[in-house]
Design a protein around this nucleic acid. Structure first.
Length: 282
DNA sequence: AAAAGCCCCTGGATGC
DNA sequence: TGCATCCAGGGGCTTT
């Protein structure tokens, strides 16, 4: 589910409300992508003990990862959450009884932060610092943040020049630019008028500039609409997003292109579906 | 180094 | 109604 806009919408929906909260307890359900406490000698119990009594300083986002910074006895403790395909967070002073897909809870003095993740592709990782081995392994190879000034078209072009894979898959890989998932990759390529199957290295500089702009435009527009809710995405206040209503190509196979009325095509690239207009995208 | 496949898991939609 | 099949917003890991 969640790509950069959905993760950022989630972050914004609880960051200020959880800031300053003291961790009272931690509930761990079924294992997610990795067992809670992965990378620690003492595993889950060590992580729970290390978090108990810690005070939340804030919530950051890196790519599709949420980083919850806490302090305990003036020492940092970090909780990293990834929503995978089907994860969503809720934060509220009062939540109903946990359901079968609620697999992690942080009980704090200001409310409960609860992760619901039916498919369990998500992850909750505890670390003492971003430089611990697990966070490093996950975060070190990430590309630039697309909605910051770190994302510039010249270096983007230089990076794409080195890649022979189809541009759609290079966008998805996240090692050049982060946060672009399956929906927004198709949408950005449509806006830029670029065929998803084109080798990344073959894109001219002006076309890369257009793609650079399109990525920023699509992600910002989705963020402004509260993200895309296809099945079950909702923010930590339980609200869905509306961007899916404005999708030009994603999920619109055989429907008329909004620009030229030609039927939208769907193809498979690396076991994921890609949508595009064969007239508007060359 | 980069690309391509595989796989983790559950549930909803579709088709027979 | 039941059962099989396919598909889903991600991404780490292994193999080419």
């Amino acid at each position: 589910m969640p790509e950069l806009p959905e993760v950022e919408v989630t972050r914004l929906s609880f960051a200020s409300r959880i800031a300053g909260a003291r961790v009272l307890d931690v509930h761990v359900g079924k294992p997610l992508r990795w067992p809670f406490g992965v990378g620690l000698a003492g595993a889950a119990q060590e992580a729970v003990d290390a978090l108990s009594g810690a005070v939340v300083q804030g919530v950051r986002r890196r790519g599709k990862y949420l980083l919850i910074d806490t302090l305990k006895d003036a020492k940092p403790r970090l909780l990293i959450i990834h929503l995978g395909m089907s994860g969503s967070l809720l934060f509220s002073p009062r939540l109903p009884a946990a359901g079968k897909h609620d697999h992690f809870s942080l009980l704090t003095s200001q409310g409960e932060l609860r992760l619901n993740d039916p498919r369990r592709f998500g992850a909750v990782i505890f670390a003492y610092s971003e430089n611990d081995s697990w966070p490093r392994k996950l975060l070190a190879g990430l590309g630039v943040e697309p909605l910051t000034d770190d994302f510039q078209s010249e270096p983007f072009h230089a990076a794409l020049k080195k890649r022979s894979a189809p541009i759609k898959q290079v966008l998805l890989a996240g090692d050049i630019v982060v946060g672009v998932g399956n929906i927004y990759a198709s949408e950005a390529l449509f806006l830029a008028g670029i065929r998803p199957t084109l080798a990344a290295s073959k894109l001219s500089k002006p076309r890369v500039f257009k793609l650079h702009q399109a990525v920023k435009t699509v992600l910002q527009a989705a963020l402004d609409k509260g993200g895309s809710t296809l099945r079950d995405f909702s923010s930590a206040t339980g609200e869905g997003g509306y961007f899916q209503l404005e999708a030009n190509v994603y999920g619109r196979e055989k429907e008329p292109c909004r620009a030229c009325a030609a039927p939208i095509k769907m193809i498979r690239q690396g076991q994921r579906s890609t949508f595009y207009c064969s007239v508007c995208q060359k």
